[in-house]
């Protein structure tokens, strides 16, 4: 992903879709992302490892429960589980940001909401890396990712309903967002089949 903060993933001999489902690798990748944010933006965080492990276990279970049998749905499923990972991270937030660097511009997303920004770029980067490896697909972020109004709305909505984070994740990745039942993969597929061209306006949210 060229236009979001980088993530140099830990080495693995396994496909990324397998490695990300191992806590040791997941944790290392998450730590790497935080290091990159520290280097690029001066953001510091403390991580609650126990909380991160619980988030990981919940994510595994929800992901496994909704795994599609049809191989043609794999691509959509990877988008879904990436958004689900973000939902769980934001819902149970394992990060606490340290004081911002001096002169930090609060009109930039990374300083406006450091914890949310860190979790979001981590999930975006993991998704991008998996899609590239599995489908040779290039990914890009929409302009909404760089719009502070979106981040303001994202933070507000996600704090009252963590599921809303999944819709915003879709918005940032250019996917058609599902706002009604974002944590149901089946609902997502049904909706895509029923109205493939429908684009939901999020400005009203």
């Amino acid at each position: 992903m060229s236009d979001a903060p980088d993530l140099h993933l830990p080495a693995t001999s396994e496909p990324l879709r397998v490695a990300i489902r191992r806590l040791r690798w997941y944790r290392e990748a998450f730590a790497r992302q935080l290091e990159e944010l520290q280097a690029d933006y001066g953001l510091g965080f403390t991580v609650d490892d126990r909380k991160l492990a619980r988030i990981f276990v919940d994510w595994l279970r929800e992901m496994e429960a909704q795994k599609p049998a049809d191989p043609s749905q794999r691509r959509a499923y990877f988008d879904f589980v990436s958004a689900l990972m973000l939902r769980n991270l934001l819902r149970d937030m394992p990060l606490k940001a340290e004081p911002l660097p001096q002169g930090a511009d609060l009109n930039r997303a990374e300083y406006f909401w450091p914890e949310g920004f860190a979790c979001t770029v981590f999930c975006l980067n993991i998704r991008a890396a998996v899609l590239e490896q599995e489908f040779h697909a290039e990914t890009a972020l929409t302009p909404d990712f760089f719009n502070l109004r979106q981040w303001w709305s994202f933070r507000e909505n996600a704090s009252s309903d963590p599921n809303a984070a999944m819709g915003f994740f879709d918005v940032f990745t250019g996917n058609n967002p599902e706002w009604q039942m974002p944590d149901s993969f089946r609902q997502r597929l049904n909706r895509a089949l029923a109205a493939p061209d429908r684009q939901t306006e999020i400005s009203s949210r």
């Binding site: 191992r22 806590l23 040791r24 944790r27 490892d49 126990r50 991160l52 492990a53 619980r54 990981f56 276990v57």
Partner: peptide, 14 residues
């Protein structure tokens, strides 16, 4: 040995 910390955190979550 290297897997023990992650295994302990997983067990705690379970």
């Amino acid at each position: 040995q290297a897997l023990l910390p992650a295994a302990a955190d997983l067990a705690l979550a379970l």
